[in-house]
Simulated scan of single mutants.
Amino acid sequence: MWVERWERQQQRYAVDREERFAVIADVTEHLCAGRDRPLLLDLGCGPGSLSARLARRLPDADIVAVDMDPVLLELGRTHHPDAARYVDAVIGEDGWTDALELDRSVDVVDVAVSTTALHYLPAPVLLRTYRALAALLRPGGALVNGDHFPPDGSPCSDLTAHVGRRRAERTGAHGSEDEDWESWWQAVAADPELTDLFEQRERTRPSSGGGNRHLSVGHHTQLLHEAGFGHVTPVWQVGDSCVLVALKD
C-alpha cells in the first residue's frame, strides 16, 4: 500500500516520470551490453522504485541501492526484496562508499544511477560525491542522473519550468485530489507499524543544507568534468526534467 501511494504522489514532482525511468534503463542497458553480470549503484534509492525497474530490465545485474531514510529502505526491502541489496548510508559523507561493502579487487561499478535525489546535496558535497563515483566506476562506466536541471539564465529557466507544468497539466499528473509529499509522510507517521522507523528518521534526518536545486546543467557539467568524467550530455528532457549522462574515460 505505502509503495503504491508513494508512486502516485511522486508523479506530482517528476514530469513524465515513467518515461524518465525508461530512458535511464535504456542508457544503462546500452552501457552494460555484453557484460555478464553488471554492477549497478542506485543513489538515493528511496523505496526501490528505480532499482525495481532496472531489475526487470536487466535481470542479471547486481544492484546496490543506497539511501539514508530508514522508512524508505524498509519499504524497499519489503516490497522489492529481490531487486537490490539495500544499504543504509549518507551519500556524500566522508567514507560513505565504505558502507557499500564492495570488494574493490573484484567489484567495479558499471553504472551509477539516480533519480530526484542528488539535488539535496549542497554543491561542495555534490562535487565530493561525483569524485567518489568516478573512483568507483570502471573506465567507460557512467553516472546516469534523472532530475530537474534548470538551464543557464532565468528567462530560459522560466520557459522550461512552464513547459513542464503544462505537460503535467495535460497528462493529469498534478490532480488536485492526489496525495502529495507532506500528506504521504503524515499518513506514514500515523501507521503504528512504522512508528519506530519514522521516529528514527526524525532523529537522524540532517537539517537542510540548501541543496543544489538551482544548479544548471552547465554547472553540473562543470562539476562532473572537475570530478573526472570526460564526457557529459543530456540525453532526454521535458521541461526542466532531464536525464544527464556523465561518462568516465
Score class of each variant (00 low, 15 high):
Leu31Lys: 10
Thr116Ala: 01
Arg17Phe: 04
Leu72Thr: 09
Glu29Trp: 06
Arg56Val: 01
Ala142Glu: 08
Pro124Ala: 11
Ser241Phe: 10
Arg77His: 01
Arg138Val: 13
Arg167Tyr: 10
Gln186Ser: 12
Leu215Glu: 00
Arg213His: 15
Thr129Phe: 15
Val109Glu: 02
Val163Leu: 07
Trp185Asn: 05
Trp2Leu: 04
Val90Phe: 14
Leu31Asp: 04
Thr78Glu: 15
His148Gly: 00
Arg213Phe: 10
Leu40Thr: 07
Asp158Leu: 15
Ile63Cys: 02
Ala168Phe: 13
Tyr130Glu: 00
Tyr120Gln: 04
Ala55Phe: 01
Ser105His: 15
Glu182Ser: 15
Met68Val: 11
Gly239Asp: 08
Ala123His: 11
Arg53Trp: 00
Leu126Met: 07
Ala65Met: 03
Asp82Lys: 14
Glu7Leu: 14
Phe198Ser: 10
Ala65Arg: 00
Asp69Glu: 13
Phe21Trp: 10
Gln10Leu: 14
Trp236Asn: 08
Arg17Trp: 12
Gly210Glu: 00
Ala33Trp: 02
His119Thr: 06
Gly230Ala: 10
Ala89Trp: 03
Ala187Trp: 11
Ala123Gly: 10
Gly211Asp: 13
Arg85Ala: 09
Pro59Asn: 09
Phe229Thr: 02
Asp82Val: 11
Leu194Met: 12
Gly76Trp: 01
Pro47Thr: 08
Pro38Tyr: 02
Leu58Glu: 01
Gly153Asp: 01
Leu126Arg: 12
Arg8Thr: 06
His148Ile: 02
Leu50Gln: 02
Glu29Phe: 04
Glu93Cys: 09
Pro206Asn: 03
Phe198Asp: 08
Arg213Leu: 12
Asp158Lys: 15
Pro155Val: 05
Met1Trp: 15
Arg167Met: 00
Val235Arg: 04
Val243Glu: 01
Gly175Ser: 10
Glu202Arg: 06
Thr195Pro: 11
Gly48Cys: 05
His219Cys: 06
Val163Cys: 00
Glu7Gln: 12
Tyr130Ala: 15
Pro47Gln: 09
Arg57Ala: 05
Gly76Asp: 02
Asp152Val: 01
Ala134Leu: 07
Ala25His: 08
Gln237Arg: 12
Asp249Gly: 12
Val87Trp: 02
Ser183Glu: 06
Glu179Asp: 11
His219Met: 12
Ser241Pro: 01
Arg35Thr: 14
Glu179Arg: 14
Asp60Cys: 07
Asp147Thr: 00
Gln10Glu: 15
Pro151Gln: 14
Thr171Arg: 15
Ala89Thr: 02
Ala89His: 01
Arg104Met: 10
Arg170Met: 08
Thr221Val: 03
Asp82Ser: 14
Glu19Phe: 12
Gly239Trp: 11
Asp103Asn: 14
Val108Met: 13
Val235Tyr: 10
Gly146Ile: 13
Val106Glu: 00
Ile63Lys: 05
Glu4Asn: 06
Asp191Val: 13
Tyr120Asn: 06
Arg53Gln: 03
Val111Leu: 07
Glu179Trp: 11
His80Phe: 09
Thr221Phe: 08
Thr115Asn: 13
Glu19Pro: 05
Ser208Asn: 12
Leu121Ile: 13
Asp26Arg: 13
Arg8His: 08
Ser207Ala: 15
Asn212Lys: 09
Gly141Pro: 04
Val188Pro: 05
Val108Arg: 13
Phe198Trp: 15
Met68Thr: 01
Cys32Arg: 02
